[in-house]
Every structure is written in structure tokens, then in C-alpha cells.
């Protein structure tokens, strides 16, 4: 369940500005049905470039509909120059805030306004027509990502996704988004680096140690009438007990260090320390 403010609910359940304006002076649509939300903004001007009336049509969730209604409330009665200054923050603030993951709804409102203005003034709509499409799932350009990262002081891919949807689909563009964030904040792009493998779990280590003892160590000792058993593994401390000849052999300490520890260090973990606890066992 989303935590929507009362204001969002009110503008979602009872929007005041839905519908169509016949022959609008400004008419722009952003988003599309595949992405899950789209907003058509229509504006009628009076003689002095002042917004006399505005309506919206929106396909989308509650916050998309509420953001659209809020946008209209904010621009009505304003001149185009005044309206041009309205940002997605203004829309979110008007609604008493939006859940973080829904901020892209307010950005959609801002985009629709910018696109309508650009078309009316016969200017290119930079956010859509310039730059490269970074997120192919949602058709988001580097221009828009750059703008939002700059204005909202975003630092993570997740934040960018909340505001623009970019990176929310196949995740294939996360590296490119990271690079844009780094560029905006004046850092060198992070170089892809291989992560070191996480340490083995105790269970994995025990299994591996048992394999090595069974396959590499015990056959050697057994050939001399001796044997070794695994008693316990505590982190990198491996406790073993020698059996048969090895248990009484005065040089078993040499055998121990020489054969068992070296093998385990080689094949399991270079920091392994082997201890002989056989005495305690045979006595107990």
C-alpha cells in the first residue's frame, strides 16, 4: 500500500481538471501506455499569453492522476513565462509530498509542461529530442537524467529510477546512469572492477576440507598404516586426530605440518592452521 497524502487522494479521487479542450493552443503528450503512464496536457491561452484554461488526460496510477491535476492547478492563470518556471518539486510540494518511488509522476508533469511550451515556441524539446536514449525500457535520455541528477542532487541509480523510471526495467543501463551521476558530481566514472569472491561459509569450508583429507591426505597416511580424522573446524583452525601408526609416531608433528596443513593451505585456504587434538580424544 502506498502512503499517499490526503491531498494526493483528493486529487486522484476528485480531479477538477480532466477532459479535453477543443482546438487547444498548447497540446503535448509525454509517456506512453507501454511504460504504464502517459499524460496529455491541453492549454487554452487568452490574448496576452496567459493560461485561461487547461485540462489533462492521464493514463496511470493514483499519483500520476493527482500530479496531473496539481500541475493544472499550478499553471492556471499564469503567463507562459511564469508557468515555465514550475518544476516537479512544485508539483510534489503542492500534493504534500509523494512517495519516493512515485517521484517520476511529478517529473512527468514537469516534462509535459516543458514539451508543450517548446512546441508552442517552435523550439526543440531538448529532454526528448536531444541526447542519447540511456534507458531503453522506458525511453529516458541522458539529457533528462543529467537534469534530474543536477536539480535533485541525486547520488544513486535507485534515486534516478524513482525520479525518471530510468533503470527500472531490465537494469542494463545502470552502469551508464552511474557514469552520468559521477559526471554531474565531477567525479571520474567508476571503473568496472571485479569483486573479490566472498569468503567461504563454514559449511563450504568443512566440506572442502573433508574432500581434501579424503582425496589427498588419508591415502598417503594409510599407505604407512596410519590415518587422520577431522575432529572440528573453527573458522581457519582445523582440529584433527591421528590414528594408527601416526598417533604414536614421534615425528607425527612433522607429518602434521608437512602433509596435512600444506595440503589444506594449498587447496582450501592459505591461512589454515592445523592442530592435533588426538591425545585428548584417545584419553577421553
Amino acid at each position: 500500500m502506498w502512503d499517499y497524502t490526503e491531498k494526493v487522494k483528493q486529487h486522484f479521487l476528485h480531479p477538477k481538471n480532466t477532459g479535453e479542450i477543443p482546438k487547444p493552443d498548447l497540446d503535448a503528450t509525454v509517456g506512453n501506455i507501454t511504460c504504464g503512464d502517459a499524460l496529455r496536457l491541453m492549454v487554452r491561452l487568452d490574448g496576452a499569453d496567459r493560461i485561461a484554461d487547461a485540462k489533462f488526460q492521464t493514463f496511470g496510477c493514483a499519483s500520476a492522476i493527482a500530479s496531473s491535476d496539481a500541475l493544472i492547478e499550478l499553471i492556471k492563470g499564469k503567463t507562459l513565462d511564469e508557468a515555465a518556471g514550475i518544476t516537479n518539486d512544485d508539483i510534489a510540494a503542492y500534493l504534500g509530498g509523494l512517495p519516493e518511488a512515485k517521484m517520476h509522476c511529478s517529473v512527468m508533469g514537469m516534462e509535459a509542461l516543458q514539451k508543450a511550451l517548446a512546441q508552442y515556441r517552435h523550439q526543440p524539446f531538448a529532454l526528448e529530442t536531444e541526447g542519447q536514449v540511456v534507458c531503453k525500457c522506458f525511453g529516458v535520455t541522458d539529457k533528462l537524467i543529467d537534469k534530474v541528477v543536477r536539480e535533485q542532487h541525486l547520488h544513486t541509480v535507485e534515486e534516478v529510477t524513482h525520479f525518471t523510471k530510468a533503470g527500472g526495467g531490465c537494469r542494463g543501463c545502470h552502469r551508464e546512469i552511474e557514469a552520468i551521476i559521477a559526471k554531474v558530481h565531477g567525479q571520474p566514472a567508476p571503473a568496472p572492477q571485479a569483486k573479490p569472491p566472498p569468503p567461504m561459509t563454514n559449511l563450504q569450508r568443512i566440506n572442502r576440507i573433508q574432500e581434501v583429507l579424503a582425496g589427498e591426505v588419508r591415502p598417503l597416511l594409510q599407505a604407512d598404516g596410519g590415518d587422520v580424522e577431522l575432529v572440528d573446524v573453527d573458522g581457519k583452525r582445523v582440529q584433527v586426530a591421528f590414528r594408527g601408526h601416526c598417533a604414536w609416531c614421534p615425528v607425527s608433528d612433522v607429518t602434521l605440518k608437512g602433509a596435512v596443513q600444506a595440503k589444506l593451505r594449498e587447496l582450501v585456504d592459505p591461512e589454515i592452521v592445523v592442530e592435533d587434538v588426538g591425545e585428548h580424544l584417545t584419553n577421553g
Binding site: 502506498w2 487522494k9 486522484f12 479521487l13 511504460c35 504504464g36 503512464d37 493514463f59 496511470g60 496510477c61 493514483a62 500520476a64 492522476i65 518511488a101 525500457c137 522506458f138 529510477t161 523510471k165 527500472g168 526495467g169
Partner: peptide, 28 residues
């Protein structure tokens, strides 16, 4: 859109689910 349907149903105390992107927190 599914989330919008669910929230309007919610006004009547009707509980259902949607496969819409917006209801899951994911975008797909």
C-alpha cells in the same frame, strides 16, 4: 491502470490485487 482501479475499489472497502507495475513498486 490497475493501481488506480484498486484504490478506487478501496473506497468501497473492496480488496483485490493487480499485476500492474505501480502496485508492486517495480516499474514493470
Amino acid at each position: 491502470e490497475g493501481e488506480a482501479i484498486l484504490l478506487m475499489l478501496d473506497q468501497y472497502g473492496i480488496c483485490a490485487s493487480s499485476g500492474s507495475a505501480c502496485t508492486t513498486g517495480s516499474l514493470e
